[in-house]
Simulated assay, not measured.
Amino acid sequence: MKWFEKHPMSMIVVGILGVSLSAIFVKYSQAPSVVTAAYRLLWTVALMLPMVFGSRNFRKELAAADRRTVVLCAVSGIFLALHFTAWFESLNQTSVASSTAIVCTEVIWVAVGFLVVLGGRIPKMAAASIAVTVAGSLMIALSDYSAGGNHLWGDALALAAAMFSAVYTLIGRQVRRGMSTTVYTFIVYVFCALSLCGATFFSGQSLTGHGMSSVVVGLLLAVFSTLLGHSIFSWCLKYFSPSFVSASKLCEPVAASLFAMMLFGEIPAALQVAGGLVTVGGVLLYSRVESGQAGRRAAGKEAARA
């Protein structure tokens, strides 16, 4: 681990590869989307159990969680379950390039939620970046509409997945102020897994009978996309600025599209590529604006202390 601490950029690369492989693994699953998502979360919870219960501090923090915190984590877990289900189904309906580009607009919907629900204010440049992102998504939708089939429905599901993830993120920002990342994510993942299992049963489906390959896909998603993907990005915040980590996540649509081209022969159309670039550019612009705001707030606090 010390080598990685001296070379943290290598972990950024690992994180990008981890999240980029998520869309690829899903394509190989033979199970329904909700079942694939359930496999991923069940494996994730199982892999986290020794870490959480093997630490005295984590056990104490878990036992000390109050009812309000647990309820918020439960709601967060439900929206995370909705995110996974909608996005996995999106990948069954449209291309990896379109789905990953649209789902990465989560940060934009977090900003909209902050404005509408929490009464926040958005600078003009941030509003412009949101408009750019929406324009890029519409270009992708137009390209997929011309292609026919269920691509447009897949784009809509990816958009819904981004919005569900935004709710999960907004709740997390409130809850994590008094909790460690490990305990918070563990509680959320438990409720997410329970929600997905419940949705599977209520929809008349089964967690079994989908072949060993689907179970393996769930394990690969848990290891690479969750633990070596999202968790690695959280670890990298210790060594890099939030804006850099956020910007690095935008490599996911590019890397995932390249994997899809090589493995599935998915060659995106020119308008689809242009829309993806515009969408990612809008998200990157917003990340820079948010980073600038955070820097100014930090400078203001330092000046006030002085």
Rank of each mutant, 00 (worst) to 15 (best):
residue 65 A to L: 15
residue 67 R to G: 09
residue 68 R to I: 12
residue 68 R to M: 11
residue 68 R to D: 14
residue 69 T to Y: 11
residue 69 T to W: 15
residue 69 T to S: 13
residue 70 V to G: 05
residue 71 V to E: 08
residue 71 V to P: 12
residue 72 L to A: 15
residue 72 L to Q: 14
residue 72 L to H: 10
residue 72 L to P: 10
residue 73 C to W: 01
residue 73 C to L: 09
residue 74 A to Q: 01
residue 75 V to P: 15
residue 75 V to G: 15
residue 77 G to Q: 02
residue 77 G to V: 00
residue 78 I to C: 03
residue 78 I to S: 02
residue 78 I to D: 01
residue 79 F to E: 03
residue 79 F to P: 02
residue 79 F to V: 01
residue 80 L to G: 00
residue 82 L to K: 00
residue 83 H to D: 14
residue 84 F to N: 00
residue 84 F to P: 03
residue 85 T to H: 06
residue 86 A to S: 12
residue 87 W to A: 13
residue 88 F to P: 05
residue 89 E to L: 12
residue 90 S to R: 08
residue 90 S to P: 14
residue 91 L to S: 15
residue 91 L to R: 07
residue 91 L to D: 13
residue 91 L to G: 11
residue 91 L to I: 15
residue 92 N to E: 08
residue 92 N to A: 13
residue 94 T to A: 04
residue 94 T to S: 13
residue 95 S to A: 08
residue 96 V to F: 05
residue 96 V to M: 10
residue 96 V to Q: 09
residue 98 S to F: 10
residue 98 S to V: 08
residue 99 S to T: 07
residue 100 T to F: 07
residue 102 I to E: 13
residue 103 V to N: 08
residue 104 C to N: 06
residue 104 C to L: 09
residue 104 C to K: 01
residue 104 C to D: 03
residue 104 C to S: 08
residue 105 T to G: 07
residue 105 T to V: 12
residue 106 E to R: 14
residue 107 V to S: 08
residue 111 A to F: 02
residue 111 A to C: 12
residue 111 A to H: 04
residue 112 V to C: 13
residue 113 G to M: 05
residue 113 G to D: 03
residue 114 F to V: 11
residue 114 F to A: 08
residue 115 L to E: 00
residue 116 V to D: 09
residue 117 V to G: 06
residue 119 G to A: 12
residue 119 G to W: 05
residue 120 G to K: 06
residue 121 R to D: 10
residue 122 I to E: 04
residue 122 I to F: 06
residue 123 P to M: 03
residue 123 P to F: 00
residue 123 P to N: 05
residue 124 K to M: 05
residue 124 K to H: 04
residue 124 K to N: 04
residue 124 K to L: 12
residue 125 M to N: 15
residue 125 M to W: 05
residue 126 A to D: 05
residue 126 A to E: 08
residue 127 A to W: 02
residue 128 A to W: 07
residue 128 A to D: 08
residue 128 A to Q: 06
residue 129 S to V: 10
residue 129 S to T: 12
residue 132 V to Q: 01
residue 133 T to K: 07
residue 134 V to G: 09
residue 135 A to S: 13
residue 136 G to V: 04
residue 138 L to C: 13
residue 139 M to P: 06
residue 139 M to A: 14
residue 140 I to G: 03
residue 140 I to V: 11
residue 140 I to C: 06
residue 140 I to Y: 03
residue 141 A to S: 12
residue 142 L to A: 11
residue 143 S to E: 05
residue 144 D to V: 08
residue 144 D to N: 07
residue 145 Y to W: 11
residue 146 S to H: 06
residue 147 A to I: 02
residue 147 A to F: 00
residue 148 G to D: 03
residue 149 G to M: 03
residue 149 G to L: 01
residue 150 N to D: 10
residue 150 N to A: 05
residue 152 L to M: 01
residue 152 L to N: 01
residue 152 L to F: 01
residue 154 G to Q: 01
residue 156 A to R: 08
residue 156 A to Y: 12
residue 157 L to R: 06
residue 157 L to I: 10
residue 157 L to F: 12
residue 158 A to Y: 11
residue 159 L to H: 09
residue 159 L to P: 11
residue 160 A to S: 15
residue 160 A to H: 05
residue 161 A to F: 02
residue 162 A to V: 10
residue 162 A to D: 09
residue 163 M to Q: 11
residue 163 M to R: 14
residue 163 M to W: 12
residue 163 M to N: 13
residue 164 F to I: 02
residue 164 F to K: 01
residue 166 A to W: 09
residue 167 V to G: 13
residue 167 V to F: 14
residue 167 V to N: 14
residue 170 L to H: 08
residue 171 I to V: 15
residue 171 I to S: 13
